[in-house]
Amino acid sequence: MRLEECIEIRAPRDEVWDFIADADNHPLFMAGLTRWDVKKGKHLKKGSRIDMRMSVGSAQVGSLIEVVECDAPADMAWTSVTGIDQRGRWRLRERGDNCTKVSLRLAYQAPGGILGWVVDQIAARDVRRNVRRSVEALKEQVESGVERARVRRAG
């Protein structure tokens, strides 16, 4: 199952990147997250590992994930080490002055052949909703942070 949600955030790409690269921020905007244990260092970089779970149906599914690509301030990708097979990517692209297009891509596959495929289809609704809410919450968090900074500077 492959999902992608995009959103435009009124903030410079570097600021959006800095927010995403700080592992402590993820519980603030990732919807449905029930576990987010960063194994070492709060700043995400290539090789960072995180134990993450998301509530889907009657289980908290997820994986131990590892950041496998970290190309600041544009792309951060991860893949699963254990748990549910998944790959994901944050993709940040500039859209004019102080505007960034953010894409969150997620590809995952439940084990178990045909039954796993059925689960993927049924669970997709929950997962898609979580992904959508996550990018919306990210926009809100980043834009409110930018606004606070602007007010501080003006004051």
């Binding site: 149906g57 009657s58 289980a59 084990p111 796993g116 689960v119």
Partner: peptide, 23 residues
Amino acid sequence: RDTLPLAWLLATLWHRAEVRGLD
């Protein structure tokens, strides 16, 4: 691992199961 989908389907669709406090 291969039987988790069957368990998930039964637990989610048939029993609306909810397990809290695993942490």
